[in-house]
């Protein structure tokens, strides 16, 4: 295993009862890289994120983060090791203020990270610090998820459909922000339906279908790949 892989996933399989959600997934993420994870609905992208971030345990295969085996590492431990994530459906602590949301993450994970004010302005919530986070709109809640992840000073960030529901202007800003994070050396896996978003962010994508990887390479090559096109014909074009 190469030491500059931040994350390596080898032959990971996850089943729920008789349903196989992930089948033999293998890939890796390099330092400072943004890897795109795309595929039609139900292809296993979010399951893949959940297995990596410790919400589910893989039935088979191995997961290494920063050279350490994380197959049995609970989510709370992973955040201390430098992995964090956002959620497709945002999950801020709704009854707590924006400030408290960020504070909690910064208190419990003692890693080098941006300061609270800096994060707040990075995600554009500097004027809402004392607002209850349940009052924010869905885009703001997603950004707060991102901010909370940043407060833990991550080396690897899993970004789950951050762009969905954003207007073009917000998307541009978000893309620019994520690129800035990558420049600071934070690796990312980006799950996204919006192809323009993925195209601008990533050099390399993995296309999934029915729990399996069917393509790996640039997005431009992916849209010329026969199997990818066939898979997407049912669920819209990339």
């Amino acid at each position: 295993m190469s030491p500059d892989y931040v994350l390596s996933v080898v032959d990971v399989t996850k089943t729920f009862g008789s349903f196989t959600a992930l089948q033999g997934m293998s890939f890796h993420v390099k330092k400072g890289e943004i890897l795109g994870l795309v595929g039609p609905n139900g292809s296993g992208k979010t399951t893949c994120m959940n297995v990596i971030s410790g919400s589910y345990r893989a039935d088979r295969g191995s997961l290494h983060f920063m050279g350490k085996n994380i197959q049995r590492t609970p989510a709370s431990k992973l955040s201390h090791m430098g992995m964090n994530r956002t959620f497709q459906i945002p999950r801020p602590f709704k009854g707590l203020t924006v400030r408290e949301n960020l504070q909690i993450a910064a208190t419990f994970v003692r890693r080098e990270a941006m300061g609270l004010e800096e994060i707040a302005s990075f995600i554009g919530l500097e004027d809402s610090l004392d607002k209850e986070s349940g009052m924010l709109n869905s885009t703001q809640q997603k950004l707060l998820d991102l901010g909370r992840a940043l407060a833990t000073g991550p080396t690897l960030l899993l970004v789950d459909e951050l762009g969905a529901g954003m207007n073009p202007h917000e998307l541009d800003i978000t893309i620019e922000r994520l690129q800035r994070l990558a420049k600071q050396g934070i690796s990312m896996i980006v799950v996204e339906h919006l192809m323009s978003f993925v195209r601008q962010l990533t050099e390399r994508v993995i296309v999934m279908n029915a729990g399996k990887e069917i393509f790996e390479g640039t997005l431009d090559d992916a849209v010329r790949n026969e199997e990818v096109v066939r898979v997407y014909l049912g669920g819209g074009t990339p």
Partner: peptide, 15 residues
């Protein structure tokens, strides 16, 4: 209180 609001997020916040 964070664990009450959302246990998954709380875990990701290192709690």
């Amino acid at each position: 209180r964070a664990t009450r609001e959302d246990a998954v997020s709380a875990a990701m916040a290192g709690i």
